[in-house]
Nucleic acid binder design. Structure first.
Lengths: 135, 135
DNA sequence: TTTAATTGTAACAAAAAATATTACAATTAT
DNA sequence: ATAATTGTAATATTTTTTGTTACAATTAAA
């Protein structure tokens, strides 16, 4: 996760949460994060696929939450945006001739997925609602 | 951590652990991981700075562990190689005019560092020794 | 019905990060 | 002396991330 996707997603969802029932435009959100509106729409598309938000095209269009704030956990957000394991990538192409190289990825798998699970179950306890309350 | 540095470091340390008191060359390690020897030496340099290994130049040179296997925790390794927080980067340049944009990074800090701490304390319980025993 | 605003998405560009390669001075055992 | 090796710098290449531009499709409202 050497990217801003989680931070961006949380920022988006926080603005939507605070907007309540209104449709919020990608342009307005982009202004708050200070990134390109198209980037907002790309990430919004991911959040839509995860079922967290809904969008509407056309004049007076925009996005809003598809669930109530306390039905959305930060784990839902993390899972939607994550594109690598917490501990990173493995070396593919390790040597089949070396007793260590041959099996190390299988051994690393345990630690890697255990670590991912740990993070997810921790984030599972945190809701968008409780995060937004801080503002 | 969208890189292979943790996996590479663990691979290196596993080979050193299995080699016991011998000096292991970067060339040999590189062959097991299937990466360039200079990459191994770069990462080795990081592990040296962390006090986990020692190197020796010259003919018959190489590297070996500086501590016993059960004095090295996977947290030590993670800390040595990590270059981003688990949940990624924050958006710098968020809008000072927006009540959310203005303070969101401070609020994210809490979640970000809590998550990092969680991962580190989990890895703290795992030793190189117990990992290496699997081979 | 026309106009204006907006999404959703694709295609492309640019910047940043990760990985790979090459080279070589310094060092050390033989 | 010779050969092998590290440590590191410089550079190149590849991959990932971020940014930009464009536009068809859609929708509300004038």
């Amino acid at each position: 996760m050497n990217n801003t996707r989680f931070a961006t997603a949380i920022h988006i969802l926080t603005l939507l949460a605070k907007a309540g029932d209104e449709w919020v435009s990608s342009d307005w959100i982009a202004g708050s994060i200070n990134i390109n509106p198209a980037m907002v729409r790309k990430e919004m598309s991911v959040l839509q696929n995860a079922g967290l938000v809904v969008g509407r095209k056309g004049k007076e269009g925009g996005s809003k939450l598809n669930l109530s704030q306390n039905e959305i956990s930060l784990a839902d957000v993390y899972i939607a945006v994550k594109n690598s394991e917490v501990l990173g990538k493995k070396n593919l192409h390790t040597s089949a001739k070396c007793p260590v190289g041959k099996v190390i990825n299988k051994k690393l798998d345990g630690i890697f997925s255990e670590t991912d699970d740990l993070v997810i179950s921790s984030l599972r306890k945190k809701t968008l609602s409780s995060f937004v309350k801080q503002f």
